[in-house]
């Protein structure tokens, strides 16, 4: 038996909206430590890693480990039927072929349940080692969203370079070129409006803007986003989802032929 209840159901709605265009399907792996997902896009260029801790839920029970194969487009259709203020409960029997989603309005006068058909998915798990990065940058998630959106209108790829001067995003295309530099800035009173640059050594990497832009669909989940960069390795774009966990996007760099 698996059962997970979250009062702030809108978080689940936002999570699925953030993932569904990148990965069409994947396994929700549930265990007594929580719920996780690792899924690559169809071209194996980027990977989504979601970790939701058991203690971040209002109630969590998982008697045995299960992999529930989810089609995110279908899950999104069902979650769109939940109100933003609803409490959401996920339920599945052991070895079930469906996941039940129950939505409860705050006033308790409307309760609905939907069954999502589960899929059998052979998932490829990648072993991602914990490592130190050359540069870690925390910035407002809205700023990240604005940068990648603006640059996507100019070019297809972005060169991200982190130096002691700051972090610079550069692109070029038919209309011309663009450079946006952010400096370390802890002046704003609100921590979520600050930019922190932790630089161990300068690094510069090139990425496809289309994916970086797609990751910014997670903006409603967190006020800040962390970018982690190391030479010749994928970038990690990480959103902390309150006390519940995190969603991380890994994107392989483009490397000179």
């Amino acid at each position: 038996m698996f059962e997970a209840r979250i009062t702030q159901g809108s978080v689940l709605k936002k999570l699925v909206e953030a993932l569904k265009e990148l990965v069409t399907e994947g396994n929700f792996d549930v265990s007594n430590t929580g719920l996780s997902l690792q899924a690559m896009d169809s071209s194996h260029v980027c990977l989504v890693s979601l970790t939701l801790r058991e203690d971040g839920f209002d109630h969590f029970r998982c008697d045995r480990n299960m992999a529930m194969g989810i089609h995110f487009g279908n899950l999104s259709k069902i979650l769109k039927c939940a109100g933003n203020e609803d409490t959401i409960t996920l339920k599945a029997e052991d070895n079930a072929d469906q996941l039940t989603l129950m939505f409860e309005a705050p006033s308790q006068d409307r309760i609905s349940d939907f069954d999502l058909k589960l899929m059998s998915i052979e998932s490829e798990h990648l072993g991602i080692p914990d490592q130190d990065y050359s540069a870690e940058v925390k910035l407002p998630s809205s700023e990240y969203q604005r940068i990648v959106r603006d640059l996507t209108s100019i070019g297809d790829t972005v060169l991200i370079s982190a130096t002691k001067e700051g972090i610079k995003f550069s692109t070029s295309g038919d209309v011309g070129t663009a450079n946006i530099t952010l400096r370390h800035n802890t002046t704003p009173e609100k921590p979520e409006e600050q930019t922190f640059i932790d630089l161990k050594e300068p690094v510069a990497l090139t990425f496809a803007l289309r994916y970086l832009n797609n990751f910014s669909k997670a903006t409603p989940l967190a006020p800040q986003v962390k970018l982690s960069l190391t030479k010749d390795l994928p970038i990690v774009v990480e959103y902390q989802v309150g006390e519940l966990g995190s969603v991380r996007f890994y994107l392989a760099p483009k490397i000179d032929d």
């Binding site: 690559m40 071209s43 194996h44 260029v45 980027c46 990977l47 490829e124 798990h125 990648l126 072993g127 991602i128 080692p129 790829t157 090139t206 496809a208 390795l233 994928p234 890994y250 392989a252 760099p253 483009k254 490397i255 000179d256 032929d257």
Partner: peptide, 14 residues
């Protein structure tokens, strides 16, 4: 022109 790498180039399959 830079070439797009595959994630599997970086991380081993478990």
């Amino acid at each position: 022109t830079p070439v797009q790498n595959d994630l599997k180039e970086f991380y081993a399959l478990l």
